[in-house]
């Protein structure tokens, strides 16, 4: 895209761009270095006590304690458990929502739409508090319920968009060979829509994993609470930054690996990979050879 916008750079402008690039790198690296140095400076509190800088060994020695890691690990497991349970429920709720919204009967369609808009427009945190207080479920199930309803609403909308985007002929073909409308939806439309929308759904599951940290606020003992609240408070103020960085690193590791998975799947089964109609400027001789994606995931798993 950007290469279309201007002519190929000549030697002069290439040199200029290289210069800006080097200067930019130096500025950015300098900023980062300054941040590291500032964090590393010893700090004098109001009462005259001197605290060593962040990179001092005394700010990190708690991590020699195995119990600290155990607590962090349990917190991370609690986060993952909530995310996994909520993801399963969110997928189920999403499927139900998408079917409700596409229902032929207005008695189902309209209430589903209203409910969906309500859930989508409300903060997850408020929903957690609501479920916690009204149904007194305990913080784990409050978090799971709020996360699965909210993300289910969003996944449902994605699935509906996927089904709507299918060519009309798919449904007509299903009905023509004698399937009932429900069977057509389940066996013909839904699998295609699901595959097309898989990247969006997984991206939403990353959001869900991130949002489990909200259950910290309603009192669930997950990674953020066990790392930043309990451990940091127990070991004292001087370790707060250390614990923050460790918790941040754990979160980033979990989320980035899930994001990476989402991107890989998006590349394999992108919006065009699952589609039935292709723009065939040159009719392929052997459709499987020309585009192996046309057979979808099954053929790949057989080949592998």
């Amino acid at each position: 895209m950007s290469s279309v916008l201007y002519d190929a750079p000549g030697p002069k402008s290439r040199a200029r761009s290289r210069l800006i690039s080097i200067v930019g790198t130096i500025i950015l690296a300098g900023g980062l270095l300054a941040l590291i140095v500032v964090l590393g400076l010893p700090k004098t509190s109001a009462n005259g006590a001197v605290q060593p800088g962040l990179w001092d060994i005394s700010r990190w020695d708690v991590f020699n304690d195995l119990l600290v890691w155990r607590t962090l690990g349990l917190g991370a497991l609690a986060t993952l458990r909530m995310a996994a349970v909520a993801a399963v429920f969110a997928l189920v709720i999403g499927v139900l929502f998408s079917f409700g919204r596409l229902s032929a009967s207005a008695w189902i369609r309209v209430p589903t739409t209203v409910l969906l808009e309500f859930f989508r427009g409300m903060p997850v945190l408020l929903m957690m508090l609501f479920i916690l207080l009204v149904f007194s479920t305990g913080s784990f199930w409050a978090g799971v319920a709020a996360l699965s309803v909210y993300n289910g609403a969003i996944i449902g909308e994605a699935l509906r968009a996927g089904i709507n985007a299918l060519p009309r002929g798919q449904r007509e073909a299903g009905l023509a060979i004698g399937l009932t409308p429900v069977a057509t939806r389940f066996r013909i439309e839904f699998p295609q829509a699901f595959r097309q929308m898989l990247p969006i759904i997984i991206a939403q599951l990353v959001v869900l994993l991130k949002d489990t940290s909200l259950s910290f606020i309603v009192g669930y003992n997950e990674l953020l609470r066990s790392g930043l609240n309990q451990l940091a408070n127990f070991f004292g103020e001087q370790y707060k930054f250390s614990f923050f960085f460790i918790v941040l690193a754990i979160y980033l590791a979990m989320n980035l690996s899930l994001s990476w998975l989402a991107r890989r799947i998006a590349k394999r089964t992108g919006p065009q990979a699952g589609s039935v109609t292709k723009d065939d400027s040159a009719p392929p001789i052997d459709p499987v050879q020309a585009d192996p994606r046309i057979l979808g995931a099954q053929s790949r798993s057989q080949g592998a």
Partner: peptide
């Protein structure tokens, strides 16, 4: 990096650690 950090963690940093 920022997109994959939970909002709760960002706000925790702002509310508890920046004052430090």
């Amino acid at each position: 990096l920022v997109r994959n950090t939970p909002l709760t963690l960002v706000l925790f940093f702002c509310a508890y650690l920046l004052p430090l």
